[in-house]
Design a protein around this nucleic acid. Sequence first.
DNA 1: CCCACTAATGTAAACGTTTACAAACGTCGG
DNA 2: CCGACGTTTGTAAACGTTTACATTAGTGGG
Lengths: 349, 349
Amino acid sequence: MSSASIKQVARIAGVSIATVSRFMNSPEKVSEKTREKVQAAIAQTGYTPNTLAQSFRRGRTNIVMVVLPSIGDPFFTGVMRGIRRTAAERGYSILINETQFNTMTADEIAAMVVSRQTDGIILLASMSPFGNEVLSAKSHRALPIVVGCETVAPELAAYPSVHVDNVAAASEATAYLIAQGHRRIGMIGGSTSSLLTRDREAGYRQAMAQAGLEVASGWMVNGDLSIDGAISATRRLLALTPRPTAVFCTTDEMAIGCLHAARSAGLSIPQDLSLMGFDDTRYARVMSPPLTTVSQPAQEIGEQVMATLCAEIERGRPAAASEDAENRSVIVPHQLVLRESVAPPADQV
Amino acid sequence: MSSASIKQVARIAGVSIATVSRFMNSPEKVSEKTREKVQAAIAQTGYTPNTLAQSFRRGRTNIVMVVLPSIGDPFFTGVMRGIRRTAAERGYSILINETQFNTMTADEIAAMVVSRQTDGIILLASMSPFGNEVLSAKSHRALPIVVGCETVAPELAAYPSVHVDNVAAASEATAYLIAQGHRRIGMIGGSTSSLLTRDREAGYRQAMAQAGLEVASGWMVNGDLSIDGAISATRRLLALTPRPTAVFCTTDEMAIGCLHAARSAGLSIPQDLSLMGFDDTRYARVMSPPLTTVSQPAQEIGEQVMATLCAEIERGRPAAASEDAENRSVIVPHQLVLRESVAPPADQV
DNA sequence: CCCACTAATGTAAACGTTTACAAACGTCGG
DNA sequence: CCGACGTTTGTAAACGTTTACATTAGTGGG
């Protein structure tokens, strides 16, 4: 007997089910008197519409899926907060998928939309071969997808996106280290198959090149976006001779690992090694020393991404017209935040 | 034309829709020849069952909701990892609800189950007045709910749960500080409306009492489970005279805030102030100094909670029989992990 | 008082599955 | 060759909504 159905409410109120349905969805279409009767019947039965039936009938679940590398990273937590906020406002729930655990392949994720389990997708992780052919084959309509944080992959170029200018930001961060007098600067990034890492690497190389500095082999290592990954990456970096005097970590999470590893190796920060992070997570400012980093407006990114996705979903199939106008990427501002993990190098080159 | 329906597949394969359905759900019931035909038709049309229709028909979404204070806390991230792992294994997706943002009231959450949007609930946050009357009124069946991490609230006593022995753990942690020679020990907890905080407080008081120590007024402050909250809490603690020589934080997250605030106030840790955390998150060991804390098997808790919920869901309505056998709480082991944020007090009392 | 027009309500089909039941088909022992 | 039984397939109802369309009630002008 779980929960009452519309039929019972209709019977009790002495009206047809259509009227009850109208009462629920557009009360202004039902007369005052009837409204009262229906209201009473609903109160009496404790009726709640069966969401499953509604979703089925309407062909919409009001659920969107967000795909990201790891929910554990505090930066993504911030983005999620923004997503969740505007999702709540607009009546959507969100389903999370972490690529880190390879729980699903890109095709499976796409299948969730095709099979109508989900109304759209937010991609915060570059899934490069996003089975786009598969998708367009499976469904004639374009999938509602929006890309966030990441630079959009070529195959996804048609989709809207919102992110900071990763190459400019990385370039500025590196330039700052250079301006402090550093010449040997290492970089700890994620896997190079990630476009985001590639962009930040491009920015790093660009700044180095502009200063006429070379990027020696072994100066760029993969820290796997994790603390542990950054710890081993840092060990590799410190084993180099001459070793870098500064390290640009493409993520605060990795900067934390790097900080720990460097200190474990007996170095003091920033005297012996300068550290630059990225993201300005809540941990950055409570580290010791507080991390110099690049801040991104995480929550704002989340909000904009979700809002854009809602628009995509709601405008439904008919896209056509001024596609490009809507599909342009939104670039949100980044900012270098200076704290205490960077100082001029002690040993002169 | 989004995605093909079972009808089209049936037509192309030259069979009835029932046969196609059987092919999908219990292929052993259809003959070899037919299987081939259907398989071909599916391949040709790219058929994917409409999940909405399936859910509607079966009355199950295979989605469960988990309610927690904040997904950002690394401890919960660990629990979520466990939940997600076993959810994936068993074919469930998970919907997250953070109470921190008050996106939904307890009643609304319950309504999601009643209205069939969700098959069950995992409560990692104590929602004390969980509108249980409302629930049992709305639906005659018991809701599939399982409680994790938290001590279960009296109204939820009937539901299964899995958590560490919070009072014992807090007691051990405090006893360790006492054993190091501390006499004035402060505690930074969450809101006292949280049962978890209350349990850990009870453990703290118990250890103090056993050592014949008094808990002075002002020694227990609310750190709001956040870094910022802990920072102000610490300031209040340090303003006391005489000030505590050690602080027990009921969360590593708050211990991090406490560490930062103490250091900002010019104290060195652990020489001037000892710090004990709780949870052993991934940040604990990379802090400087590394945090002494109490570890909980986060992932294991998640796995067990989810597995229990699956059992609840799958056994469906008919509970009866040996209810209590299943409904007992599972206590998972905790462990004190000794690192470097605790030392004997410098100033002798 | 009737007609026309609007507002309110009812009827019934449709959405894509699953599944109880009935029907058809094979196979095999007699 | 027949009947019985097991296997495979088909038929049709059901799940709880929404909604196009038909119908009825209500309103006001002529």
